[in-house]
C-alpha cells in the first residue's frame, strides 16, 4: 500500500465519530432549510417587487390623474405580458 493510500485511509478512518454526528446534523438542517427558503424567496419575488414597483411608479410619475388610470395589479401582470410577447 502506498503512503498516499494510507493517508487517505487515515483521513476516512478519522471520520468515525465526528463524521457521523456531522452528517446527521447536516441532514436535519437541510430538511428544515428547504421550506424556509421557498417561503422567503417567494416573498422577494412577489410582495417586495410588486410593492416597490408601484412605489417607484408613484415616485417618478407625479400626475395623480395618470396614477389612478393604472389598474390595480398591473405591476404583477406586466411582467408576464412583457416577457412572453410571443405567447
Amino acid at each position: 500500500m502506498s503512503s498516499r493510500t494510507l493517508v487517505l485511509a487515515a483521513a476516512v478512518g478519522g471520520l468515525f465519530t465526528l463524521g457521523t454526528i456531522g452528517a446527521a446534523v447536516a441532514g436535519d438542517d437541510a430538511a428544515e432549510t428547504e421550506k424556509c427558503y421557498g417561503v422567503a424567496d417567494a416573498g422577494k419575488n412577489d410582495c417586495h417587487t410588486a410593492s416597490h414597483s408601484c412605489a417607484g411608479m408613484a415616485a417618478t410619475d407625479k400626475d395623480p390623474a395618470e396614477w389612478v388610470k393604472v389598474p390595480k395589479g398591473t405591476c404583477e401582470e406586466m411582467g408576464g405580458k412583457l416577457t412572453a410577447p410571443e405567447a
Binding site: 422577494k44 419575488n45 417586495h48 417587487t49 410588486a50 416597490h52 414597483s53 408601484c54 412605489a55 417607484g56 411608479m57 415616485a59 417618478t60 410619475d61 400626475d63 390623474a65 395618470e66 388610470k69 393604472v70 398591473t74 405591476c75 406586466m78 411582467g79 412583457l82
Partner: peptide, 26 residues
C-alpha cells in the same frame, strides 16, 4: 384619449423600478 407617450412612460418607469428593486434585493 390621454397622451400616449405619457401613459407609456408609466409602464416604462414601472418596468425599470420593478427590475431595479428586484436586483437590489439580490
Amino acid at each position: 384619449g390621454p397622451d400616449a407617450a405619457q401613459r407609456l412612460s408609466i409602464y416604462r418607469t414601472n418596468l425599470q423600478a420593478g427590475f431595479r428593486h428586484a436586483l437590489a434585493l439580490g
